[in-house]
Design a protein around this nucleic acid. Sequence first.
DNA 1: AACGTCTGCAACCGCCGTTCA
DNA 2: GTGAACGGCGGTTGCAGACGT
Length: 270
Amino acid sequence: MGRAPCCSKVGLNKGAWTPQEDLRLITYIQQYGHSNWRALPKLAGLKRCGKSCRLRWINYLRPDIKRGNFTQEEEETIIKLHNKLGNKWSKIASCLPGRTDNEIKNVWNTHLKKQLASNEQNAKTKSTTTDSSNPQLEKIEIPVENEMDISSLLMDDSTSSQAEETKNAEKPVCSDSDSISTFTFSDAVNSFGDVENDPFDITNLFIEPELWEEIEPKERDIISQEREENEGGEVRDWFKHLERELMKDANDQIDPFLRDLNFDDFKIVF
DNA sequence: AACGTCTGCAACCGCCGTTCA
DNA sequence: GTGAACGGCGGTTGCAGACGT
């Protein structure tokens, strides 16, 4: 007996999402959250499968998505973690704030895998020398263990043994099982700081309640204060962007659901 | 300009683990 | 204990734009 399909596929839209659909999804989630993905499309008036909505939100519409090319540091992190974890994209993504598993998977399959392959090829042809044109992309041999501390993988190879000794004294960049307790607001700021044209301020990022509890009280105050000042701005900007997109196609009819929206009604959801 | 090929990425598919009645 | 419902994950596909001929 096979599993029932996640939803009836009859009459549902497939393929690329339209700006109208995006706007509907964002609007609904901002107002009501996403406690039930299966029910969401019906409640939001979307002709989409719940899974499709979830994927669209997680991979594209979430306000805390980090846009732009991956930095060298991020690529190094992916390579190191992939060496250790294999294709555990969600685990790798959990160590790269603002990056999605899908995005990381794509980057790996389209760029990093090829780079590593060509790097290995170069290493074979230049087997007499230890030089490498791209040292950070060299394959790193790390023994696989059942229990692991990802933070050690993210430290410099040269400092890893030292790091092991001072494990408890050092604050890891990320840990598989306990990332929430060690990831501070300052870490987030640093990790987002050099992103060009980042449309979202760090203080407006959606923060899961559990994570919010773990943020230092002082930092929470700073975030809250800045949020009060900017409340709704990020969402409004995003709506405005979508509005512009919507207006590009003169043949589009204005969605009645969206027509009467008052953008000032929307606030960041905690 | 027209056509074919390549590349990157968004989205889909199907399976798995967890939860709950 | 069982199976349906659901969220999540990883592999794969398909499309659009870039590029080459």
